[in-house]
Nucleic acid binder design. Structure first.
Lengths: 201, 201, 201, 201
DNA sequence: AATGAATGAGTGTTCATTCAT
DNA sequence: CATGAATGAACACTCATTCAT
């Protein structure tokens, strides 16, 4: 009812919690399928099998829903970044493959949000649905790791490059495309490229 | 009602040529600034200082304008791909740096189009404003080069990875951001990463 | 579904009485602050610190709440009208000033309701939230007084004029406006104008 | 079209001029009939037999249309105020009757706008659709006239009272009501009341 | 070849009212 | 008695596209 703080705390009862959750999931699905702009609130509402009114009971507007989703991803992302493995030493390749696999899984789930989020243009509008902040955090942490093993590189740029490569490659090689390469091959290739690319010859 | 195929040949007189050109340039600028969805025909028209009526004299619709721009980029892109250098042998690094620089320049001019074009979601709608075709072409040619020097890699995936890394890194490190790293540093870092990443240890 | 006639008697227990009262007061405040149309049931409910459900336990709808408030005012108004003083004879001015002062006090408390109530447009919708009835009663009684002292006037029109002048002037000169004239001055001016205006030269 | 300055100059061609005019007239009618809040843009558009799109070609929004109308009224009102007659001397009554008649005619045409405009609540929202400014101007000019003939009165308050009486009485005694008093009687009564009310005994 | 004007389907959002607990 | 949750009909506004000159 025009509550002033739809998304905020507001101590939801169990039923409310469930509804909100349903909306979040529906939102993720719809954004994934149609992209931010093309997604209609109506799609989300329908996917969550609720009404328009209910939607605005939980989120101030479409953007707010996106932001909520993005926050979730940002958290997962940052956590993952903290575990970016050491690229040198024995077992480095295994560690890296494991990390990329987890990254890919996160992408699978939240790809759409990530993509919109990474879209510089969308991000511009009033610092964007979300703002580039979180990406920066992730990059920073990876840069720190890179700095320890490849002091000759500009760690920041390298981190961006590594992340960009992983993210885009994973998302480009995913999908219903029958010719899509095997996930294992993708992970292997990426791991190898990242490792040698960063460590050098 | 005007001609049935506004965009096509239709043998434009000099004046018409100029108007069409103005619209293309305006379109590139506006798409760059606002992204495909957020860009209004009105913006384009205003930037080209013409009228709506005129716009539809030259392009059947917004998508058609985009397609025209994308075609230009696709052509340039394919040409560039053909010149992707040999990664082995003496001078490889210089060659690669030169190539990346040219790629970055192309990105500078046509970044927006590239970005939208690469957006899987935008691309989905009726096989997308343009369809992934051209990207595929580019990837194929680079894959061919990679195959010759790194037979142990899945050349296709590697090509995607390399291109993804270059494109995104360049576009992420470009812009009015005062903290943006130097272009030369970016090119150096990318060249090194690509070369070692592909060639291995 | 609750009782069929929420607003009516329904013999409320003490607690219910208090809740209903709280809603009435909240309603008065909110209508005053925002006007009939702009006032949301949510505002009222929030001001009364209850829930939507509860609101509809006591009033069938927003209009019913308004009607209840208007009825209160109408009663007070009619009573006041009965005491409209004789405009002739000694002490007339004092009597009139006293009456206007009481009128102003009533306005202070119920100004918003009065205003909405007097709004011909609001009043139109299905004979309005309330209908012009009560105003008519008040006018009639004042007209009777005027008829006795100024037989040459159209008492009905004069009554409307007098009431209109008093009501609007009071409400226009009230408020947080720092430049608002002193209430005493307003009352004096009105009393004089009414008396001479009605009695003539 | 999203023209940046719909209402503004923009040098309308004859056709545009006509459309804009039609919208203004439709707006006046609809506001009169339904009041500001209850009036839907759709009503206006329908009354002007145009489309929604066209409406927003000429006015940024509903409020802007109202503002345009209010500006017209304000101008007429201020002009009329300048001609508020001398209340003393021979022929005063005739002059006053003539003035009130003209005022009533203005009210007939623009009553709705005036009413909304005068509504303190509507006026509050961001200084209201229009703001009380113009009313103040009118009051000031009338106050000046009153000051010359009744130095003992608070001219400002008296001016408000006079204007309030005239405006409300006229609008209350107008309308399809079959029992509505004759306009001539209303004007006579008002003229007499104003004159004696201001001049005193 | 060009342009200003017109269109209307589509979309986000609000809010009075009803339901379930 | 009371409440949080749900509903959906309205409504304002946008923008790609077409028309008339």
């Amino acid at each position: 009812m025009a509550a002033d703080d739809p998304a905020n705390g507001r101590a939801l009862r169990p039923r409310g919690q469930r509804t909100r959750q349903r909306l979040l999931e529906a939102g993720a699905a719809v954004f994934a399928e149609r992209g931010y702009h093309t997604a209609r609130v109506d799609d989300v509402v329908r996917a969550a099998s609720t009404s328009h009114g209910t939607f605005y009971l939980y989120f101030a507007n479409k953007e707010e829903l996106f932001r909520a989703l993005a926050d979730e991803v940002a958290t997962a992302m940052t956590a993952l970044a903290d575990e970016f493995p050491d690229l040198a030493g024995p077992g480095a390749d295994d560690r890296l493959r494991a990390w990329i696999t987890r990254f890919a899984e996160l992408t699978d789930r939240s790809g759409a949000v990530l993509r919109v989020w990474a879209d510089p243009v969308a991000a511009e509008a009033e610092s964007g649905p979300v703002g580039a902040g979180p990406t920066a955090t992730v990059t920073d942490r990876i840069a720190a790791r890179i700095a320890t093993v490849a002091p000759d590189l500009d760690a920041h740029v390298a981190a961006i490059a590594v992340l960009a490569m992983i993210e885009r490659t994973v998302s480009l090689t995913t999908g219903p495309d029958p010719a899509a390469p095997d996930r294992a091959v993708v992970v292997d290739t990426l791991a190898r490229t990242v490792r040698f690319g960063v460590l050098g010859g």
